[in-house]
Nucleic acid binder design. Sequence first.
DNA 1: AGCTTCTCCTACCGCATTGGTAGGATTAAA
DNA 2: TTTAATCCTACCAATGCGGTAGGAGAAGCT
Lengths: 164, 164
Amino acid sequence: MIFTTKAEYGVRLLVELGRQSTESPVSLKAIAESEGLPLAYLERIVALLKRADLVESTRGAHGGYRLARDPESVTMDEVVLALEGSVAPMSCFVDETDDGRVLCSHVDDGEACATKFLWLRVQGGVIEALRRTTLAELVAFSAKQDVAQKPVPLGSALPLHSAA
Amino acid sequence: MIFTTKAEYGVRLLVELGRQSTESPVSLKAIAESEGLPLAYLERIVALLKRADLVESTRGAHGGYRLARDPESVTMDEVVLALEGSVAPMSCFVDETDDGRVLCSHVDDGEACATKFLWLRVQGGVIEALRRTTLAELVAFSAKQDVAQKPVPLGSALPLHSAA
DNA sequence: AGCTTCTCCTACCGCATTGGTAGGATTAAA
DNA sequence: TTTAATCCTACCAATGCGGTAGGAGAAGCT
Protein backbone atom coordinates (compact mmCIF):
# COMPACT_ATOMS: atom_id res chain seq x y z
CA MET A 1 0.00 0.00 0.00
CA ILE A 2 1.44 3.35 -0.99
CA PHE A 3 -0.63 5.56 1.29
CA THR A 4 -2.54 5.02 4.48
CA THR A 5 -5.99 6.20 5.39
CA LYS A 6 -4.47 9.40 6.70
CA ALA A 7 -4.03 10.50 3.09
CA GLU A 8 -7.45 9.20 2.09
CA TYR A 9 -9.31 10.87 4.93
CA GLY A 10 -7.25 14.03 4.81
CA VAL A 11 -7.89 14.58 1.13
CA ARG A 12 -11.59 13.80 1.56
CA LEU A 13 -11.66 16.36 4.33
CA LEU A 14 -10.04 19.03 2.20
CA VAL A 15 -12.38 18.31 -0.70
CA GLU A 16 -15.32 18.61 1.63
CA LEU A 17 -14.03 21.94 2.89
CA GLY A 18 -13.49 23.03 -0.69
CA ARG A 19 -17.10 22.33 -1.55
CA GLN A 20 -18.25 24.75 1.13
CA SER A 21 -17.58 27.97 -0.68
CA THR A 22 -18.82 29.92 2.31
CA GLU A 23 -16.29 31.40 4.63
CA SER A 24 -17.98 30.16 7.77
CA PRO A 25 -16.09 27.30 9.35
CA VAL A 26 -17.32 23.71 9.13
CA SER A 27 -17.18 21.49 12.18
CA LEU A 28 -15.38 18.20 12.07
CA LYS A 29 -18.44 16.49 13.39
CA ALA A 30 -20.43 17.51 10.33
CA ILE A 31 -17.71 16.24 8.02
CA ALA A 32 -17.30 13.02 9.95
CA GLU A 33 -20.99 12.32 9.68
CA SER A 34 -21.32 13.21 6.03
CA GLU A 35 -18.29 11.10 5.09
CA GLY A 36 -18.91 8.33 7.59
CA LEU A 37 -15.54 8.69 9.25
CA PRO A 38 -14.62 8.38 12.94
CA LEU A 39 -14.53 11.83 14.49
CA ALA A 40 -11.74 11.23 16.97
CA TYR A 41 -9.50 9.93 14.24
CA LEU A 42 -10.32 12.87 11.98
CA GLU A 43 -9.26 15.22 14.74
CA ARG A 44 -5.75 13.84 14.64
CA ILE A 45 -5.65 14.00 10.88
CA VAL A 46 -6.82 17.58 10.62
CA ALA A 47 -4.12 18.53 13.08
CA LEU A 48 -1.56 17.54 10.44
CA LEU A 49 -3.26 19.76 7.90
CA LYS A 50 -3.33 22.64 10.29
CA ARG A 51 0.35 22.27 11.14
CA ALA A 52 1.06 22.59 7.41
CA ASP A 53 -1.09 25.72 7.18
CA LEU A 54 -3.51 24.08 4.80
CA VAL A 55 -6.52 24.72 7.02
CA GLU A 56 -7.45 27.33 9.59
CA SER A 57 -9.51 26.73 12.67
CA THR A 58 -11.75 28.69 14.98
CA ARG A 59 -12.42 27.25 18.38
CA GLY A 60 -15.50 27.27 20.49
CA ALA A 61 -19.14 26.89 19.62
CA HIS A 62 -19.95 27.30 15.92
CA GLY A 63 -16.27 26.88 15.29
CA GLY A 64 -14.66 24.56 12.83
CA TYR A 65 -12.24 24.50 9.95
CA ARG A 66 -11.89 26.24 6.62
CA LEU A 67 -9.32 26.22 3.87
CA ALA A 68 -6.38 28.50 4.51
CA ARG A 69 -5.55 28.98 0.84
CA ASP A 70 -7.06 29.15 -2.59
CA PRO A 71 -7.88 25.59 -3.74
CA GLU A 72 -6.26 26.37 -7.09
CA SER A 73 -2.91 26.84 -5.39
CA VAL A 74 -3.06 23.74 -3.23
CA THR A 75 -1.31 20.83 -4.93
CA MET A 76 -1.63 17.28 -3.72
CA ASP A 77 2.06 16.75 -3.18
CA GLU A 78 2.10 19.18 -0.28
CA VAL A 79 -1.13 17.73 1.03
CA VAL A 80 0.12 14.17 1.02
CA LEU A 81 3.48 15.23 2.37
CA ALA A 82 1.75 16.93 5.28
CA LEU A 83 -0.42 13.92 5.95
CA GLU A 84 1.99 11.04 5.44
CA GLY A 85 5.21 12.74 6.47
CA SER A 86 7.07 11.67 3.36
CA VAL A 87 6.64 10.03 0.00
CA ALA A 88 9.26 7.35 0.40
CA PRO A 89 9.34 4.31 -1.87
CA MET A 90 11.65 2.39 0.45
CA SER A 91 12.71 2.39 4.05
CA CYS A 92 16.19 3.62 3.17
CA PHE A 93 14.60 6.88 2.03
CA VAL A 94 14.37 8.18 5.55
CA ASP A 95 16.69 11.17 5.60
CA GLU A 96 14.31 13.62 4.12
CA THR A 97 15.51 16.91 2.77
CA ASP A 98 13.48 20.08 3.12
CA ASP A 99 11.59 19.46 -0.08
CA GLY A 100 10.15 16.02 0.46
CA ARG A 101 12.54 14.62 -2.12
CA VAL A 102 14.65 12.33 -0.07
CA LEU A 103 17.92 10.61 -0.60
CA CYS A 104 18.90 7.02 -0.06
CA SER A 105 20.86 6.58 3.10
CA HIS A 106 23.46 4.20 1.68
CA VAL A 107 24.64 6.53 -1.05
CA ASP A 108 28.28 5.74 -0.49
CA ASP A 109 27.99 1.99 -0.24
CA GLY A 110 30.47 -0.18 -1.99
CA GLU A 111 27.53 -1.69 -3.77
CA ALA A 112 26.27 0.62 -6.44
CA CYS A 113 22.66 0.55 -5.31
CA ALA A 114 20.91 0.15 -8.63
CA THR A 115 17.68 -0.06 -6.71
CA LYS A 116 18.06 3.49 -5.50
CA PHE A 117 18.10 4.54 -9.12
CA LEU A 118 14.81 2.72 -9.62
CA TRP A 119 13.10 3.97 -6.48
CA LEU A 120 14.06 7.53 -7.29
CA ARG A 121 12.29 7.16 -10.59
CA VAL A 122 9.23 5.80 -8.88
CA GLN A 123 9.27 8.56 -6.34
CA GLY A 124 9.53 11.09 -9.12
CA GLY A 125 6.51 9.56 -10.81
CA VAL A 126 4.46 9.74 -7.66
CA ILE A 127 5.41 13.28 -6.80
CA GLU A 128 4.80 14.46 -10.33
CA ALA A 129 1.35 12.89 -10.38
CA LEU A 130 0.54 14.51 -7.06
CA ARG A 131 1.97 17.88 -8.04
CA ARG A 132 -0.14 18.26 -11.15
CA THR A 133 -3.35 17.65 -9.23
CA THR A 134 -4.83 20.62 -7.41
CA LEU A 135 -7.46 20.64 -4.72
CA ALA A 136 -9.65 22.75 -6.98
CA GLU A 137 -9.57 19.99 -9.57
CA LEU A 138 -10.72 17.41 -7.06
CA VAL A 139 -13.48 19.67 -5.79
CA ALA A 140 -14.69 20.24 -9.33
CA PHE A 141 -14.58 16.52 -10.02
CA SER A 142 -16.54 15.79 -6.90
CA ALA A 143 -19.19 18.36 -7.73
CA LYS A 144 -19.54 17.08 -11.28
CA GLN A 145 -20.12 13.53 -10.09
CA ASP A 146 -22.67 14.78 -7.64
CA VAL A 147 -24.79 16.39 -10.32
CA ALA A 148 -24.44 13.42 -12.62
CA GLN A 149 -25.43 10.85 -10.06
CA LYS A 150 -28.10 12.41 -7.90
CA PRO A 151 -29.61 15.69 -8.99
CA VAL A 152 -30.17 17.59 -5.81
CA PRO A 153 -32.69 20.39 -5.29
CA LEU A 154 -30.50 23.46 -5.42
CA GLY A 155 -30.82 26.41 -3.13
CA SER A 156 -31.82 24.24 -0.21
CA ALA A 157 -30.63 25.01 3.28
CA LEU A 158 -28.91 21.76 3.98
CA PRO A 159 -26.33 21.74 6.72
CA LEU A 160 -23.68 20.28 4.46
CA HIS A 161 -22.67 20.10 0.78
CA SER A 162 -25.76 21.16 -1.12
CA ALA A 163 -24.05 20.33 -4.42
CA ALA A 164 -23.67 24.04 -5.02
CA MET B 1 6.43 3.34 2.48
CA ILE B 2 5.48 2.37 -1.02
CA PHE B 3 7.33 -0.92 -1.25
CA THR B 4 8.63 -3.42 1.24
CA THR B 5 11.98 -5.12 1.34
CA LYS B 6 10.55 -7.86 -0.84
CA ALA B 7 10.82 -5.48 -3.78
CA GLU B 8 14.22 -4.21 -2.69
CA TYR B 9 15.74 -7.63 -2.20
CA GLY B 10 14.03 -9.13 -5.21
CA VAL B 11 15.31 -6.46 -7.56
CA ARG B 12 18.79 -6.70 -6.09
CA LEU B 13 18.65 -10.42 -6.67
CA LEU B 14 17.65 -10.02 -10.30
CA VAL B 15 20.35 -7.42 -10.88
CA GLU B 16 22.90 -9.75 -9.40
CA LEU B 17 21.73 -12.54 -11.67
CA GLY B 18 21.88 -10.18 -14.59
CA ARG B 19 25.51 -9.37 -13.87
CA GLN B 20 26.41 -13.02 -14.21
CA SER B 21 26.31 -13.28 -17.96
CA THR B 22 27.26 -16.95 -17.75
CA GLU B 23 24.52 -19.49 -18.16
CA SER B 24 25.57 -21.52 -15.11
CA PRO B 25 23.20 -21.03 -12.22
CA VAL B 26 24.09 -18.94 -9.19
CA SER B 27 23.29 -20.17 -5.73
CA LEU B 28 21.21 -18.10 -3.36
CA LYS B 29 23.86 -18.52 -0.74
CA ALA B 30 26.39 -16.70 -2.88
CA ILE B 31 23.98 -13.87 -3.55
CA ALA B 32 22.97 -13.64 0.07
CA GLU B 33 26.58 -13.32 1.14
CA SER B 34 27.57 -10.84 -1.52
CA GLU B 35 24.55 -8.64 -0.81
CA GLY B 36 24.50 -9.19 2.91
CA LEU B 37 20.95 -10.50 2.98
CA PRO B 38 19.43 -13.30 5.07
CA LEU B 39 19.43 -16.49 3.05
CA ALA B 40 16.22 -17.98 4.41
CA TYR B 41 14.33 -14.82 3.65
CA LEU B 42 15.76 -14.64 0.13
CA GLU B 43 14.48 -18.15 -0.49
CA ARG B 44 10.93 -17.00 0.01
CA ILE B 45 11.46 -13.98 -2.16
CA VAL B 46 12.98 -15.85 -5.06
CA ALA B 47 10.01 -18.20 -4.97
CA LEU B 48 7.85 -15.24 -6.00
CA LEU B 49 10.13 -14.52 -8.92
CA LYS B 50 10.06 -18.13 -9.99
CA ARG B 51 6.29 -18.31 -9.83
CA ALA B 52 6.23 -15.36 -12.23
CA ASP B 53 8.66 -17.12 -14.59
CA LEU B 54 11.27 -14.44 -14.13
CA VAL B 55 13.95 -16.86 -12.95
CA GLU B 56 14.66 -20.52 -13.53
CA SER B 57 16.13 -22.89 -11.01
CA THR B 58 18.14 -26.09 -10.99
CA ARG B 59 18.10 -28.12 -7.84
CA GLY B 60 20.80 -30.15 -6.19
CA ALA B 61 24.48 -29.48 -5.75
CA HIS B 62 25.90 -26.74 -7.95
CA GLY B 63 22.35 -25.71 -8.60
CA GLY B 64 20.96 -22.24 -8.30
CA TYR B 65 19.05 -19.62 -10.22
CA ARG B 66 19.42 -17.87 -13.54
CA LEU B 67 17.33 -15.36 -15.43
CA ALA B 68 14.56 -16.91 -17.45
CA ARG B 69 14.37 -14.08 -19.98
CA ASP B 70 16.45 -11.49 -21.73
CA PRO B 71 17.09 -8.63 -19.29
CA GLU B 72 16.12 -6.17 -22.01
CA SER B 73 12.60 -7.54 -22.03
CA VAL B 74 12.11 -7.58 -18.28
CA THR B 75 10.39 -4.42 -17.09
CA MET B 76 10.19 -3.44 -13.48
CA ASP B 77 6.43 -3.27 -13.36
CA GLU B 78 6.13 -7.02 -13.79
CA VAL B 79 8.95 -7.55 -11.33
CA VAL B 80 7.41 -5.44 -8.62
CA LEU B 81 3.99 -6.87 -9.32
CA ALA B 82 5.36 -10.37 -8.86
CA LEU B 83 7.10 -9.41 -5.65
CA GLU B 84 4.56 -7.19 -3.97
CA GLY B 85 1.39 -8.69 -5.33
CA SER B 86 -0.02 -5.37 -6.45
CA VAL B 87 0.81 -1.71 -6.87
CA ALA B 88 -2.07 -0.29 -4.92
CA PRO B 89 -2.06 3.29 -3.67
CA MET B 90 -4.88 2.67 -1.22
CA SER B 91 -6.52 -0.18 0.57
CA CYS B 92 -9.69 0.15 -1.49
CA PHE B 93 -7.64 -0.90 -4.54
CA VAL B 94 -7.84 -4.53 -3.63
CA ASP B 95 -9.86 -6.07 -6.43
CA GLU B 96 -7.06 -6.45 -8.87
CA THR B 97 -7.73 -7.12 -12.48
CA ASP B 98 -5.48 -9.35 -14.53
CA ASP B 99 -3.19 -6.52 -15.50
CA GLY B 100 -2.19 -5.14 -12.15
CA ARG B 101 -4.25 -2.07 -12.81
CA VAL B 102 -6.84 -2.30 -10.13
CA LEU B 103 -10.12 -0.61 -9.58
CA CYS B 104 -11.48 1.08 -6.53
CA SER B 105 -13.98 -1.08 -4.75
CA HIS B 106 -16.50 1.67 -4.08
CA VAL B 107 -16.97 2.65 -7.68
CA ASP B 108 -20.70 2.97 -7.35
CA ASP B 109 -20.82 4.85 -4.11
CA GLY B 110 -23.20 7.69 -3.71
CA GLU B 111 -20.17 9.77 -2.85
CA ALA B 112 -18.23 10.57 -5.98
CA CYS B 113 -14.89 9.42 -4.64
CA ALA B 114 -12.67 12.24 -5.82
CA THR B 115 -9.81 10.51 -4.07
CA LYS B 116 -10.08 7.54 -6.39
CA PHE B 117 -9.42 9.93 -9.24
CA LEU B 118 -6.27 11.07 -7.47
CA TRP B 119 -5.01 7.63 -6.53
CA LEU B 120 -5.49 6.37 -10.05
CA ARG B 121 -3.24 9.14 -11.24
CA VAL B 122 -0.64 8.22 -8.67
CA GLN B 123 -0.85 4.57 -9.57
CA GLY B 124 -0.41 5.47 -13.21
CA GLY B 125 2.68 7.46 -12.37
CA VAL B 126 4.20 4.57 -10.45
CA ILE B 127 3.43 1.95 -13.05
CA GLU B 128 4.73 4.15 -15.83
CA ALA B 129 7.98 4.76 -14.00
CA LEU B 130 8.36 1.05 -13.39
CA ARG B 131 7.42 0.08 -16.91
CA ARG B 132 10.04 2.24 -18.56
CA THR B 133 12.84 0.74 -16.48
CA THR B 134 14.25 -2.54 -17.70
CA LEU B 135 16.39 -5.00 -15.81
CA ALA B 136 19.11 -4.51 -18.41
CA GLU B 137 19.20 -0.83 -17.56
CA LEU B 138 19.69 -1.55 -13.89
CA VAL B 139 22.38 -4.10 -14.60
CA ALA B 140 24.21 -1.59 -16.78
CA PHE B 141 23.85 1.06 -14.11
CA SER B 142 25.22 -1.27 -11.50
CA ALA B 143 28.18 -2.27 -13.64
CA LYS B 144 28.97 1.35 -14.47
CA GLN B 145 29.05 2.29 -10.80
CA ASP B 146 31.27 -0.68 -10.11
CA VAL B 147 33.88 0.43 -12.60
CA ALA B 148 33.71 4.01 -11.45
CA GLN B 149 34.18 3.15 -7.81
CA LYS B 150 36.61 0.27 -7.79
CA PRO B 151 38.28 -0.81 -11.05
CA VAL B 152 38.25 -4.58 -11.14
CA PRO B 153 40.61 -6.98 -12.93
CA LEU B 154 38.45 -8.42 -15.68
CA GLY B 155 38.53 -12.00 -16.90
CA SER B 156 39.12 -13.53 -13.53
CA ALA B 157 37.56 -16.87 -12.62
CA LEU B 158 36.01 -16.02 -9.32
CA PRO B 159 32.88 -17.90 -8.28
CA LEU B 160 30.83 -14.75 -7.94
CA HIS B 161 30.90 -11.20 -9.27
CA SER B 162 34.60 -10.50 -9.40
CA ALA B 163 34.32 -7.15 -7.69
CA ALA B 164 34.99 -8.93 -4.44
C1' DA C 1 -22.35 32.51 35.36
C1' DG C 2 -23.07 28.37 33.33
C1' DC C 3 -23.99 25.37 29.71
C1' DT C 4 -22.96 23.80 25.27
C1' DT C 5 -20.27 23.18 21.31
C1' DC C 6 -16.36 23.12 19.39
C1' DT C 7 -10.96 22.52 18.89
C1' DC C 8 -7.00 20.46 20.88
C1' DC C 9 -3.93 17.06 23.23
C1' DT C 10 -2.12 12.65 24.94
C1' DA C 11 -2.27 8.16 26.22
C1' DC C 12 -3.83 3.67 25.19
C1' DC C 13 -5.09 -0.75 22.49
C1' DG C 14 -6.23 -4.59 19.19
C1' DC C 15 -4.79 -6.17 15.05
C1' DA C 16 -2.42 -7.16 10.65
C1' DT C 17 1.67 -7.11 8.30
C1' DT C 18 6.54 -7.25 7.87
C1' DG C 19 10.95 -9.11 8.30
C1' DG C 20 13.17 -12.89 9.82
C1' DT C 21 14.05 -17.77 11.84
C1' DA C 22 13.74 -22.91 12.23
C1' DG C 23 13.52 -27.20 10.60
C1' DG C 24 13.02 -30.17 7.59
C1' DA C 25 11.98 -32.64 2.85
C1' DT C 26 13.54 -33.22 -1.93
C1' DT C 27 16.88 -33.20 -5.72
C1' DA C 28 21.20 -33.97 -7.89
C1' DA C 29 26.24 -33.68 -8.38
C1' DA C 30 30.68 -35.70 -6.65
C1' DT D 1 26.33 -41.69 0.35
C1' DT D 2 27.70 -37.48 1.50
C1' DT D 3 27.05 -32.79 0.33
C1' DA D 4 25.13 -28.72 -1.59
C1' DA D 5 21.55 -26.82 -3.19
C1' DT D 6 16.26 -25.78 -3.94
C1' DC D 7 11.81 -26.10 -1.83
C1' DC D 8 8.14 -25.85 1.73
C1' DT D 9 5.67 -24.69 5.97
C1' DA D 10 5.16 -23.22 10.41
C1' DC D 11 6.48 -19.98 13.74
C1' DC D 12 7.74 -15.51 15.99
C1' DA D 13 8.94 -10.67 17.55
C1' DA D 14 8.40 -6.03 16.41
C1' DT D 15 6.26 -2.37 14.20
C1' DG D 16 2.75 0.55 12.54
C1' DC D 17 -1.97 1.38 11.55
C1' DG D 18 -6.64 2.44 12.54
C1' DG D 19 -9.33 3.55 16.16
C1' DT D 20 -10.89 4.75 21.15
C1' DA D 21 -11.01 7.26 25.62
C1' DG D 22 -10.84 10.96 28.35
C1' DG D 23 -10.14 14.86 29.08
C1' DA D 24 -8.57 20.32 29.01
C1' DG D 25 -9.08 24.97 26.81
C1' DA D 26 -11.95 28.41 23.95
C1' DA D 27 -15.95 30.78 22.47
C1' DG D 28 -20.86 31.46 21.68
C1' DC D 29 -25.71 31.38 23.92
C1' DT D 30 -29.08 31.87 27.37
